[in-house]
Amino acid sequence: MYKYVALFRGLNVGGHNKITMVDLKAMLEGADCQKVTTYIQSGNAVFQSDVSPNEIESHLENAFEDQFGYAVEIMVRGDKELQAVFDDYPFFNEERELRFMMTGFAKGGFAPDAETVLANVAEGDELVQIVGNQVHFYFANGSGRSKLGALNFAKKIGTPLTLRNRRTVGKLLELINAL
Protein backbone atom coordinates (compact mmCIF):
# COMPACT_ATOMS: atom_id res chain seq x y z
CA MET A 1 0.00 0.00 0.00
CA TYR A 2 1.41 3.37 -1.04
CA LYS A 3 0.81 6.75 0.62
CA TYR A 4 0.20 9.62 -1.79
CA VAL A 5 -0.65 13.29 -2.01
CA ALA A 6 -2.60 14.39 -5.09
CA LEU A 7 -2.41 18.04 -6.11
CA PHE A 8 -5.11 19.02 -8.58
CA ARG A 9 -4.15 21.85 -10.92
CA GLY A 10 -6.71 24.59 -11.49
CA LEU A 11 -9.59 23.42 -9.29
CA ASN A 12 -11.73 26.11 -7.66
CA VAL A 13 -9.53 28.91 -8.97
CA GLY A 14 -11.30 32.09 -10.04
CA GLY A 15 -14.66 30.33 -10.12
CA HIS A 16 -13.52 27.76 -12.69
CA ASN A 17 -13.64 23.97 -12.39
CA LYS A 18 -15.62 24.14 -9.16
CA ILE A 19 -15.63 20.85 -7.31
CA THR A 20 -16.60 20.33 -3.68
CA MET A 21 -14.10 18.46 -1.59
CA VAL A 22 -16.86 15.98 -0.70
CA ASP A 23 -17.26 15.16 -4.42
CA LEU A 24 -13.48 15.01 -4.89
CA LYS A 25 -13.16 12.62 -1.94
CA ALA A 26 -15.94 10.42 -3.37
CA MET A 27 -14.20 10.35 -6.77
CA LEU A 28 -10.92 9.28 -5.16
CA GLU A 29 -12.63 6.59 -3.11
CA GLY A 30 -14.28 5.33 -6.30
CA ALA A 31 -10.79 5.15 -7.87
CA ASP A 32 -9.54 2.62 -5.31
CA CYS A 33 -8.11 5.15 -2.85
CA GLN A 34 -8.44 4.54 0.88
CA LYS A 35 -8.25 6.79 3.94
CA VAL A 36 -8.84 9.86 1.75
CA THR A 37 -8.47 13.25 3.43
CA THR A 38 -8.86 16.51 1.53
CA TYR A 39 -7.30 19.79 2.57
CA ILE A 40 -8.68 23.24 1.72
CA GLN A 41 -10.75 23.95 -1.38
CA SER A 42 -7.93 24.15 -3.93
CA GLY A 43 -7.67 20.44 -4.67
CA ASN A 44 -5.33 18.70 -2.25
CA ALA A 45 -5.84 15.14 -1.03
CA VAL A 46 -3.83 12.51 0.81
CA PHE A 47 -4.71 8.84 0.58
CA GLN A 48 -3.48 5.27 0.38
CA SER A 49 -3.68 3.12 -2.75
CA ASP A 50 -2.37 -0.12 -4.20
CA VAL A 51 -1.96 1.55 -7.62
CA SER A 52 1.75 1.82 -8.44
CA PRO A 53 3.63 5.13 -8.53
CA ASN A 54 4.11 4.72 -12.31
CA GLU A 55 0.36 4.49 -12.90
CA ILE A 56 -1.29 6.60 -10.20
CA GLU A 57 -1.43 9.97 -12.02
CA SER A 58 -3.04 8.62 -15.20
CA HIS A 59 -5.33 6.39 -13.11
CA LEU A 60 -6.63 9.40 -11.17
CA GLU A 61 -6.84 11.68 -14.22
CA ASN A 62 -8.97 9.09 -16.03
CA ALA A 63 -11.20 8.62 -12.97
CA PHE A 64 -11.61 12.40 -12.62
CA GLU A 65 -12.58 12.86 -16.27
CA ASP A 66 -15.03 9.93 -16.09
CA GLN A 67 -16.64 11.41 -12.96
CA PHE A 68 -16.73 15.13 -13.81
CA GLY A 69 -16.64 15.21 -17.61
CA TYR A 70 -13.49 17.26 -18.12
CA ALA A 71 -9.77 16.73 -17.76
CA VAL A 72 -7.47 18.20 -15.13
CA GLU A 73 -3.79 17.71 -14.47
CA ILE A 74 -2.99 15.94 -11.24
CA MET A 75 0.48 15.94 -9.75
CA VAL A 76 0.98 13.00 -7.39
CA ARG A 77 3.85 12.53 -4.97
CA GLY A 78 4.57 9.74 -2.50
CA ASP A 79 5.07 10.34 1.21
CA LYS A 80 8.87 10.20 1.00
CA GLU A 81 8.86 12.54 -2.02
CA LEU A 82 6.68 15.04 -0.16
CA GLN A 83 9.02 14.91 2.85
CA ALA A 84 11.99 15.59 0.56
CA VAL A 85 10.15 18.52 -1.06
CA PHE A 86 9.59 20.05 2.37
CA ASP A 87 13.12 19.34 3.62
CA ASP A 88 14.84 20.52 0.43
CA TYR A 89 13.13 23.92 0.26
CA PRO A 90 16.20 26.16 -0.21
CA PHE A 91 14.83 29.58 0.79
CA PHE A 92 13.47 28.96 4.27
CA ASN A 93 14.27 31.74 6.69
CA GLU A 94 12.41 32.55 9.92
CA GLU A 95 12.16 36.19 8.86
CA ARG A 96 10.35 35.40 5.61
CA GLU A 97 6.59 34.92 5.37
CA LEU A 98 5.52 31.31 4.78
CA ARG A 99 2.84 32.40 2.32
CA PHE A 100 5.54 33.77 0.00
CA MET A 101 7.51 30.50 0.11
CA MET A 102 6.04 28.39 -2.70
CA THR A 103 6.75 25.09 -4.36
CA GLY A 104 5.69 24.31 -7.91
CA PHE A 105 5.03 20.61 -8.43
CA ALA A 106 5.88 19.69 -12.02
CA LYS A 107 3.81 17.38 -14.19
CA GLY A 108 6.71 16.21 -16.34
CA GLY A 109 10.32 16.93 -17.18
CA PHE A 110 11.76 20.41 -17.48
CA ALA A 111 13.16 22.01 -20.61
CA PRO A 112 16.99 22.07 -20.47
CA ASP A 113 17.06 25.84 -19.93
CA ALA A 114 14.14 25.96 -17.48
CA GLU A 115 16.04 27.29 -14.46
CA THR A 116 17.68 30.03 -16.56
CA VAL A 117 14.32 31.04 -18.03
CA LEU A 118 12.81 31.29 -14.54
CA ALA A 119 15.79 33.20 -13.15
CA ASN A 120 15.57 35.70 -16.01
CA VAL A 121 11.90 36.41 -15.23
CA ALA A 122 12.45 36.74 -11.48
CA GLU A 123 12.52 40.34 -10.26
CA GLY A 124 14.02 42.08 -7.25
CA ASP A 125 14.32 39.78 -4.25
CA GLU A 126 12.50 36.85 -5.88
CA LEU A 127 14.32 33.53 -5.72
CA VAL A 128 13.85 30.38 -7.78
CA GLN A 129 15.54 26.98 -7.85
CA ILE A 130 14.69 23.62 -9.43
CA VAL A 131 15.19 20.68 -7.09
CA GLY A 132 14.19 17.28 -8.47
CA ASN A 133 10.70 17.46 -9.98
CA GLN A 134 9.80 20.70 -8.21
CA VAL A 135 10.50 24.38 -8.56
CA HIS A 136 10.97 26.25 -5.31
CA PHE A 137 10.09 29.94 -5.26
CA TYR A 138 10.35 32.79 -2.85
CA PHE A 139 8.03 35.59 -3.95
CA ALA A 140 9.34 38.52 -1.91
CA ASN A 141 6.22 40.63 -2.58
CA GLY A 142 3.71 37.82 -3.16
CA SER A 143 3.02 35.68 -6.19
CA GLY A 144 0.01 37.78 -7.25
CA ARG A 145 2.25 40.72 -8.16
CA SER A 146 4.99 38.66 -9.73
CA LYS A 147 5.69 38.17 -13.42
CA LEU A 148 7.20 34.85 -12.40
CA GLY A 149 3.96 33.78 -10.70
CA ALA A 150 1.93 34.64 -13.81
CA LEU A 151 4.20 32.72 -16.19
CA ASN A 152 2.75 30.08 -18.50
CA PHE A 153 4.99 27.36 -17.11
CA ALA A 154 4.06 24.68 -19.63
CA LYS A 155 5.08 26.97 -22.48
CA LYS A 156 8.17 28.53 -20.89
CA ILE A 157 9.76 25.61 -18.98
CA GLY A 158 8.27 22.60 -20.73
CA THR A 159 5.88 21.36 -18.04
CA PRO A 160 2.86 22.63 -16.15
CA LEU A 161 3.21 23.34 -12.44
CA THR A 162 0.75 23.55 -9.61
CA LEU A 163 1.92 25.80 -6.79
CA ARG A 164 1.43 25.37 -3.05
CA ASN A 165 2.77 27.55 -0.26
CA ARG A 166 5.02 26.16 2.46
CA ARG A 167 2.25 26.15 5.06
CA THR A 168 0.09 23.96 2.80
CA VAL A 169 2.97 21.60 1.99
CA GLY A 170 3.65 21.27 5.74
CA LYS A 171 0.02 20.50 6.50
CA LEU A 172 -0.15 17.93 3.70
CA LEU A 173 2.98 16.33 5.12
CA GLU A 174 1.29 16.08 8.56
CA LEU A 175 -1.79 14.51 6.97
CA ILE A 176 0.12 11.97 4.88
CA ASN A 177 2.25 10.97 7.87
CA ALA A 178 -0.94 10.36 9.88
CA LEU A 179 -2.23 7.77 7.37
Rank of each mutant, 00 (worst) to 15 (best):
M1Y: 08
Y4P: 00
A6D: 00
L7P: 00
L7R: 00
L7H: 01
R9G: 01
R9A: 03
L11K: 01
H16F: 10
H16A: 15
K18Q: 15
I19H: 02
T20Y: 09
T20D: 11
T20V: 08
M21Y: 10
M21E: 12
V22R: 07
D23Q: 13
K25I: 09
K25N: 12
A26H: 11
A26C: 07
L28I: 00
L28N: 00
E29G: 05
E29W: 05
A31C: 10
D32C: 03
Q34I: 06
K35A: 15
K35C: 12
T37M: 14
T38G: 07
Y39P: 04
Y39I: 02
Y39N: 05
I40M: 15
Q41T: 05
S42P: 12
S42R: 08
G43N: 03
G43S: 08
N44M: 06
V46N: 04
V51N: 02
S52Y: 06
N54M: 10
N54E: 14
E55A: 14
E57M: 12
E61H: 03
E61A: 05
E61K: 07
E65S: 11
D66N: 15
G69D: 02
Y70I: 10
E73K: 12
E73L: 12
E73V: 11
E73Q: 14
E73A: 11
I74L: 13
V76M: 06
D79I: 04
K80W: 05
E81M: 09
L82R: 01
Q83I: 09
A84E: 15
V85R: 00
F86D: 04
F86H: 14
F86N: 04
D87K: 04
D88L: 09
Y89S: 03
Y89F: 15
F92C: 09
F92L: 14
N93G: 10
R96W: 00
E97P: 03
E97V: 13
R99L: 15
F100L: 10
F100H: 11
F100W: 11
M101Y: 03
T103R: 12
A106V: 10
G108E: 05
F110T: 03
P112M: 08
P112T: 08
T116C: 09
V117F: 05
V117K: 01
L118H: 02
A122F: 04
A122H: 05
E126D: 14
V128E: 01
V128M: 06
I130F: 03
I130R: 02
V131K: 15
H136V: 08
F139R: 04
N141G: 02
G142P: 08
G142D: 08
S143C: 11
G144H: 06
G144Y: 10
R145Y: 07
R145G: 08
S146P: 01
S146W: 02
S146E: 02
S146G: 05
L148S: 00
G149M: 10
G149F: 07
A150T: 06
A150N: 13
L151D: 00
N152G: 07
F153Y: 10
A154R: 01
A154L: 08
A154P: 00
K155H: 09
K156H: 12
G158A: 07
G158M: 02
P160Y: 07
L161N: 00
T162L: 09
L163S: 14
L163W: 04
L163F: 10
R164H: 13
R166S: 10
R166Q: 13
R167T: 14
T168S: 14
T168A: 13
V169F: 03
K171P: 11
L173I: 11
E174A: 09
E174T: 14
N177T: 11
A178Q: 12
L179N: 09
